[in-house]
Design a protein around this nucleic acid. Structure first.
Lengths: 122, 122
DNA sequence: CGGAATCCCCAGCGATACTG
DNA sequence: CAGTATCGCTGGGGATTCCG
């Protein structure tokens, strides 16, 4: 179901790195290596793939300088910048309520463990 | 990297069904079965898991009526409603620019196919 | 330096069957 | 009706190696 358009964009965001990559390059063009180090923990393969997906979707611009060694710069397109604004709003929400969520999880887990303890007590 | 709080929430949204499930129940409590049919295409297992995750995170409330047959109603918590507002903003964005994105993809694919055709032409 | 290619693992999800 | 339990697969993604 939900063959609607928003599903496409949703699938994009569902990718593990898309948000992080986009969030890492809002200020001007950035070289591949620099981006890689900024996102410490990402594989070069996943960074390449993620950037390709974003470029294909028209959210990221890719500029190649045929020098030696080669140099490639990535930047957000206007559309990409527009989306980053939304994601930023989301990030703010997350930082505001993150604590609240993790507390809720701890409470939930504590409640779930309780019956088990009662069982072991016999 | 990015052990920051927003990553937790990000992982939640990255789940395939979270956004769809939350988007499907903004108006009052809703029974499991109804929700299931509304989300036509979701497995009962995934719906259960998704709802559990959301309940654990404090975004969804689960109320059980010990009748026969059993009846369980799900609803958004205030925190969940708050998040839905954000997701709604995102959905609007997606529907506004979805076309633009799929066009960009077609252009990209066309360009990518071109060199191949040039090769085959020889 | 930026990226393509290859190998491989395992979590996510679907399908199916069973239960209180 | 609203789940839990079990099996099986596929594909996302990591590690490594090679290339211009």
């Amino acid at each position: 179901m939900r063959n609607c358009v928003s599903r496409d964009v949703l699938d994009l965001l569902a990718s593990k790195w898309v948000c992080l990559v986009m969030g890492a390059l809002p200020n001007g063009p950035m070289r591949f290596g620099v981006l890689r180090r900024r996102l410490d923990g990402i594989t070069q393969k996943m960074l390449t793939r993620t950037l390709r997906d974003l470029e294909r979707a028209g959210l990221v611009d890719r500029q190649v300088f045929p020098t030696t060694p080669p140099q490639v710069e990535y930047s957000l397109t206007p559309l990409g910048q527009d989306l980053v604004v939304l994601m930023e709003a989301f990030r703010v929400w997350a930082e505001k309520h993150g604590e609240e969520i993790s507390e809720a999880r701890e409470r939930y887990d504590a409640r779930a463990a309780e019956p088990v303890r009662a069982l072991n007590a016999r």
